[in-house]
């Protein structure tokens, strides 16, 4: 019945439908989040017996004074700034080109999408070879244009760029597909109208494509920023279980991992997780605020 009034009985029935998913969410998402928030305040903690003997802020003061954590935050920000804008620009450019191709476009789409479905470890192995200082493909190509070989994975100055390049490449496929969907959703009438209104290709791009694609660009950017803040497996796989030469690719999640699994400092690991959570929250809120003005739905 369309005009049925909600009753206790109908509400309980509704909640029962939600229950299975809710139970999974509560157990594996909500509870761990609350627990890790609490854990960040444990200062004396017996992990095996789960006994907390003291609470306090000392985990956060430790992070505040730890040069490693400062490095991790800085590296994470460099990574985000290095990956996200280039990733968005390159995937948009490729999507625009794919959109123009009449034939074999789907073959190209598949090729570009492959990195997304391939395991990060496998990708890292291939890039490990590409980056190899002595017989890697990249140095060979650079050699052709007269650039001296770079020790990508062992030089602290080049480890982060190497990580960024691989991550951009890995993220392209999915974003290209999203941009293609966005481009297909723009009615060709707008381009015809713009052409009649005197807009050349560039003006059509800036006045029709960019604004009408902005919801998708926003989605891709927010998604990219959150994903990049959480970068871990690319580092672990590319640098074979280390955080790069002299910690040059140490990021917040890598820092968390080390504190938790190798140093057993659970409270500090949890505290760094909380800091990451608020960093992502602030950046995402900033993006939302920016989108109010510049994203056209």
């Amino acid at each position: 019945m369309l005009n049925e009034k909600p009753t206790w009985k109908s509400s309980i029935k509704g909640w029962l439908y939600l229950l299975p998913m809710l139970a999974i969410s509560l157990t594996f998402n909500i509870y761990p989040i609350i627990k890790s928030f609490l854990m960040s305040f444990y200062t004396k903690y017996d992990f095996y017996n789960d006994i907390v003997s003291a609470y306090g802020f000392s985990n956060f003061t430790y992070l505040w004074n730890d040069p490693d954590f400062h490095l991790a935050v800085r590296n994470t920000l460099i990574f985000v700034i290095g990956v996200v804008p280039l990733n968005v620009i390159i995937s948009l450019a490729i999507a625009l080109m794919l959109n123009k191709i009449k034939y074999v476009a789907s073959a190209f789409r598949t090729i570009y999408f492959l990195p997304f479905v391939t395991s990060t470890v496998a990708i890292a192995q291939v890039w490990n070879w590409i980056y190899n200082a002595d017989y890697g493909l990249l140095n060979y190509l650079l050699g052709l244009v007269g650039i001296n070989p770079i020790n990508w994975l062992n030089d602290p100055n080049w480890a982060m760029p190497a990580l960024i390049i691989m991550s951009i490449w890995k993220g392209l496929g999915f974003n290209i597909v999203l941009f293609l969907v966005g481009l297909n959703n723009i009615n060709t009438r707008y381009y015809q109208a713009a052409e009649i209104d005197g807009a050349n290709s560039w003006h059509q791009f800036t006045n029709v494509t960019i604004p009408l694609l902005s919801p998708m660009t926003f989605l891709v950017t927010v998604n990219g920023v959150i994903g990049s803040f959480k970068v871990f497996d690319e580092i672990f796989a590319l640098f074979q279980g280390s955080s790069g030469p002299s910690k040059s690719a140490l990021t917040i999640v890598y820092y968390l991992y080390e504190k938790f699994y190798t140093e057993w400092k659970y409270g500090i690991a949890a505290a760094s997780g909380v800091v990451l959570f608020f960093l992502i929250l602030i950046v995402t809120l900033l993006q939302l605020w920016y989108s109010r003005k510049h994203v056209h739905y």
């Binding site: 009615n187 707008y190 109208a193």
Partner: peptide, 14 residues
């Protein structure tokens, strides 16, 4: 230098 009005108007929504 033609002016054109489309069936669905094609006004720029933004």
């Amino acid at each position: 230098k033609v002016g054109m009005v489309f069936q669905n108007y094609a006004l720029y929504p933004h």
